[in-house]
Design a protein around this nucleic acid. Sequence first.
DNA 1: AATTGACTTGTACGACTGCCCAAAAACCAT
DNA 2: ATGGTTTTTGGGCAGTCGTACAAGTCAATT
Lengths: 197, 197
Amino acid sequence: MTEASADRGRTTRQRLLGAAAALIAEVGWGGVSTRMVAERAGVAPGVVHYHYASLTDLLIAASTGAARGMLEELTGRLTEQPGPEAGVEWLLGELSRYTGTDPSSLLIVEMYLAAARLPDLREQLQELVTASRARVAAWLRGGGHAGDAEAAAAVLVAAVDGLMLHRGLDPALDLTALAGPLRAMVRTSGHEKGRST
Amino acid sequence: MTEASADRGRTTRQRLLGAAAALIAEVGWGGVSTRMVAERAGVAPGVVHYHYASLTDLLIAASTGAARGMLEELTGRLTEQPGPEAGVEWLLGELSRYTGTDPSSLLIVEMYLAAARLPDLREQLQELVTASRARVAAWLRGGGHAGDAEAAAAVLVAAVDGLMLHRGLDPALDLTALAGPLRAMVRTSGHEKGRST
DNA sequence: AATTGACTTGTACGACTGCCCAAAAACCAT
DNA sequence: ATGGTTTTTGGGCAGTCGTACAAGTCAATT
C-alpha cells in the first residue's frame, strides 16, 4: 500500500476540516462554498469533492469534529469541579470567555440550526448532547444533588446554550451575576419529584 | 394623493413580510431568495426591490415583526400567571407546544444567528429581548421572589431559548419534567446576594 | 381627456453556486 | 525505467443568485 500518499490525503483532509469549521462560524453554514474552503485550505477547488461526497458532508464532518472536542473538554473540566455549586461558579467564569459572537459560539449555534434540516447531523449532534447531559447528571448526583439530577442537568446544559445566544446580542451581560439562580437550581434541596425519560 | 394605490402597496408589503418570515423558518435566513419570496407572496420577482432596498432589509423587517408579536404575547401571558412557581409550570406547558423544528422556534434561532452578522438586526432584537427580560424580572419581583430578580429572569429567558434549541435535537425531551429545577430557581429562597447590571 | 404618481411586470446582467472530469502530478512497487 | 494508485489540478456545465430597469397598469387629480 502507498503510505506517503495516504498521509498526504490525511493532512489535506485535516486542512479542509479546519478551514470548513472556521468558515461556518465566519459566514454561516449556508454561506460556505466549496471554493472558499479550498482557498482557505490552500488547495485547488476540485479537491473538496475528491475527499468528500458533497459540501454538506464536509460541513457535517467539520462541525461535529470541532463540537465534539469543545464539548468533551468543557464537560470534562466541569465534572472535575469539587461540587455542583462550585461547578456552576466555574462554569460561568469559563463561559464568560465566550462573547457569543466568537467562532466557537457561532459554530455551535450554526450546528443546532443546520441540524434541524439535516437528519444526519441531527443524529450526531443529539448523541453528543445526550452524552454531555448524562455526564453532568452523574456528576450532579455524585455531588449530592438530591432532586432529579437528569432534569437539573438538562436545564443547566440548555441554559448554557441559551446564555451563549443572549450573549451574542448583549456582550455586556454579566454572566457571573447569574450564579445565584443557577446555584439555587443545583442545590441539594430537591423535595420536588420528577421522572427522567 | 393616490389612496387605493397606497393600500395596494400596503397589502403587498404585508404579503411579502409574511412570506419572508415563513421562508426564513423553512429554508434558513441565507436560503431565502428574492424569487422565492415573490412567488410565495404571489407577486412578480421585481417587486421586492421596489418596496425594500435590499433582500436583507426585507428579512430584517419580517423577522423582527414576527418575533415582536411572539415575544410580547408569550411574556404578556406569562406575567398574567399568579406567581413565579405557577408561571414556570405554565411556561413549560406552553413551550411543549413548540417542537424545536416548528416555524416559530426556527425563526427565532435564525434571528439570533443572523443578528451576529447584521448590526441593525442585532440592535432591534436586543431591544426586544431586554424588554422581555425586564417584564419578567418585574413580575418575579412582584410575585415575591426574594433573590436577584434580574438574574433569575435572565437565566429563565435564556433557558427558554436553550430548551428550544435542545428540543429540536430531541423532540422526546419532556419539558414538564424540568419544572423542579426551574421552580427551585424562582422560589422565594434567595439568601444569595447578586447585583443586577 | 389628460396628467400624475404609486405600483407592478418581466427581463437582463454579471457574479457565484455545487458538482464533474479529463489530464497532470506525485508517489510506490517492481 | 515501467506500470499502477492516489492525489491534485483547473476548467467546464447548468443553474441560481441579488439587483437594476424600461415598460406597463391602474386609480385619483386636474
